[in-house]
C-alpha cells in the first residue's frame, strides 16, 4: 500500500524534527539542571563537584555532540537518565504511560457514548426546545475548564455521599480492575465531559449538513423508516469530522492531562513533562516529548486509515 509506506517513511523525519526543536528550546530557557536538581543545596557545591556532575550527565559537551549522543542512544533504545527521577527516561515514561493511555481511552469512550447520540438527537430535533437544551449543555460543557468540573465532582462526592474518589497508589487494570476503575472513572468523566461536548457540537452540525443531502431524500423516497435514514444513511456520512476531532483530542490526551492528574493525584504523563520542564531535566523532556509526538503521529495515521474505511471515495493510495 503506497500511502502507508510513504507515511512510514516520513515518520522518523518528523520525529527528528520534533526532537531538534525540543532539544534547542529547553536549552534556551535560563537555568541549568544541576541547580534545579539540587535546589538550595546547589549553593554548597564546590566548582569541582559541579564540573564533575555536569560531566557525569554529559552536559559539558557542545550541543551538537550532546544531540548526536542522544540520537545514538535512541537507536539503542536508550533515552538517557532522568536527572529529576534518577531513573532511565524510558522507565519513567513507561511507568506512567499505562495510566495516561487508559484515561484517554475511557474519556474517549465516554465522549463518544454521550456526544454522538446527543449530537444526532439535536440534529434530528433541529430548532426544537430539546435541540436548544442539548446545545446549551454542550456549550457549558465545552467552556467549563476541566479542573472546575473535577473539583465539582470531588465536592459532590464528598459532601453528597461522604466519599472520595479512590486515590493513593495507582493500581494497573491487569492487577486490580475494580480498584483501577474506581480510581480512573471520575478523572475520565472530568476529561470526557468537555470532550463529549465537542463531539456533540460537531456531530450535530455534521448531521444537519448530511440530513439535507440528496441521498437522504433518496433514502426516504425508497420508504426507509426514520431510524434507518438516520443511522444507516446519514450517520456514516457525518462521521468524518467526528473521527477527526476524536483523533485529535485523543492524541492530546495521550500527552497527559496535567490539571486533572494533579486534582485526582494521579501519576500520569502530563506531570512528567511538567516536572521535566520545571527541573530542566533535558533528557526526560526530550524523551517524553518524542514519545508523545510519536503517539500523536500513530493516532493520526489511524485516523487517516479510518477515513478510508468510512468513505470509499477516499482512496489513500491515490493522492
Amino acid at each position: 500500500m503506497g500511502y502507508l509506506t510513504r507515511r512510514l517513511v516520513t515518520f522518523p523525519l518528523v520525529l527528528i524534527g520534533v526532537s531538534i526543536l525540543v532539544f534547542v528550546a529547553i536549552r534556551l530557557v535560563p537555568g541549568d539542571s544541576i541547580t534545579a536538581m539540587l535546589g538550595t543545596e546547589a549553593g554548597l557545591l564546590t566548582p569541582q563537584q559541579r564540573v564533575a556532575l555536569t560531566a557525569y550527565f554529559g552536559l559539558d559537551q557542545n550541543w551538537l555532540v550532546q544531540y548526536w549522543h542522544w540520537l545514538l542512544g535512541l537507536f539503542r533504545g536508550d533515552l538517557g537518565i532522568s536527572v529529576a527521577y534518577g531513573k532511565p527516561v524510558l522507565d519513567v515514561i513507561l511507568d506512567r504511560f499505562p495510566l495516561t493511555l487508559e484515561l484517554a481511552f475511557l474519556s474517549m469512550i465516554i465522549a463518544l457514548a454521550v456526544g454522538l447520540p446527543a449530537g444526532v438527537f439535536a440534529a434530528t430535533h433541529n430548532g426544537r426546545p430539546s435541540d436548544l437544551a442539548v446545545r446549551i449543555f454542550a456549550m457549558i460543557g465545552q467552556s467549563t475548564p476541566s479542573f472546575v468540573v473535577g473539583l465539582l465532582i470531588i465536592y459532590v462526592l464528598s459532601v453528597g455521599f461522604g466519599a472520595l474518589p479512590t486515590m493513593g497508589e495507582f493500581s494497573p487494570f491487569w492487577q486490580d480492575p475494580l480498584r483501577n476503575l474506581s480510581q480512573l472513572i471520575f478523572p475520565a468523566i472530568t476529561l470526557g465531559l468537555a470532550f463529549a461536548a465537542s463531539v456533540t457540537r460537531i456531530s450535530r452540525s455534521a448531521m444537519l449538513d448530511v440530513l439535507s443531502d440528496d441521498y437522504v431524500r433518496t433514502a426516504r423516497s425508497k420508504g426507509a423508516p426514520a431510524r434507518s435514514v438516520i443511522w444507516r444513511h446519514a450517520l456514516p456520512n457525518a462521521l468524518i469530522p467526528v473521527v477527526t476531532l476524536s483523533g485529535m483530542e485523543f492524541g492530546y490526551l495521550l500527552g497527559g492531562a496535567v490539571l486533572v492528574e494533579k486534582i485526582y493525584a494521579l501519576p500520569g504523563l502530563g506531570r512528567v513533562v511538567l516536572d521535566a520542564i520545571l527541573q530542566r531535566d533535558y533528557a526526560l523532556l526530550q524523551g517524553s516529548v518524542l514519545f508523545i509526538a510519536f503517539n500523536f503521529m500513530v493516532v493520526n495515521l489511524l485516523v487517516d486509515l479510518a477515513y478510508s474505511a468510512l468513505d470509499p471515495r477516499i482512496r489513500l493510495g491515490e493522492r
Binding site: 443531502d213 441521498y215 433518496t218 456520512n237
Partner: peptide
C-alpha cells in the same frame, strides 16, 4: 431526481 451524482449514498455500495 435531477442530480444522480449526489442522489446516491456515497458510502454504500
Amino acid at each position: 431526481f435531477q442530480e444522480p451524482m449526489t442522489s446516491l449514498n456515497p458510502v454504500l455500495s
